[in-house]
Nucleic acid binder design. Structure first.
Lengths: 137, 137
DNA sequence: GCTAAATATCATATTATCATGATAAAGACA
DNA sequence: TGTCTTTATCATGATAATATGATATTTAGC
């Protein structure tokens, strides 16, 4: 579903949401805690910074933090720079003739699934993924 | 959503369902019609044959055909050998602690989406994708 | 200013996916 | 049997994703 890179980005953002409320977090700490290659994670964090998801501070006692509160950051913002979820095709095969007007029998069912997936990433926040340990119904 | 390889496999199977009812189809014809690299398609078709989706006949006037009727072939059979859809993770992050019992707030919503996607591939047949040109509601 | 610690950047290696090219094996048919 | 057409297989190349290693730049604090 997600590329390694996008999943790393998401897990890093969650780590910051959970542990970075009142301090800066360094790449080394996150890389070790999340078991992600350090320099690879470094690039991902830098990219998230450029995309406005994180704020970085250089130099001694520097590190990363979220640019906004976890309930104001949506999954698509974290994952979007690495995986193009929004461009998910409406027709499974990308057929031009399989439009909404002349559709194959499975078209409507697939389209609904694709749309709901996009909506999930667009409307779910980091806070909601944080794991309030809700017991599932 | 699907890798190139899996999409090629699906389009090839659909081509066979549409044009291969009463004759064998050669790689060359399909490669040209579907705009897929010939030798690459050849390997994919061979793989589908080994997986029991197609039947191949070698030698002069040989070619490929479906091993079953289109309404008896499910998308997962065609796509599964190339993309592991069934292994789609129930938790977006693969977190062990994010199980059904102690779930994050978004867990249930994601799980439902993931399951419905798997079910789509498992329960939709080639025939249903063939495009009866139904006008969408 | 010096030093240590941290991010930023560049270069390169590794691996998987996608694709091409050449040859071998099988089978129909004259 | 010979030949032509086809799938089957092998070897290699191209590209993108993933990962590592080394260096530059920035900054806090002494």
């Amino acid at each position: 579903m997600l590329s390694h890179t996008a999943e790393y980005a998401l897990r890093a953002a969650l780590y910051l949401a959970e542990h970075g409320q009142d301090r800066l977090i360094q790449v080394g700490e996150m890389a070790e805690a999340l078991r992600i290659p350090r320099n690879y994670l470094s690039k991902i964090l830098h990219s998230l910074t450029r995309h406005g998801v994180l704020r970085s501070t250089r130099g001694k006692s520097g590190g990363f933090r979220l640019a906004r509160t976890p309930d104001d950051l949506y999954l698509v913002q974290v994952v979007g720079p690495f995986d193009r979820l929004g461009e998910k095709r409406q027709c499974l095969l990308g057929r031009p003739q399989c439009s909404d007007r002349t559709a194959c029998a499975a078209h409507a069912r697939w389209k609904e699934l694709a749309e709901r997936t996009v909506v999930f990433f667009r409307e779910t926040t980091l806070a909601e993924l944080l794991g309030g340990a809700v017991i599932a119904a």
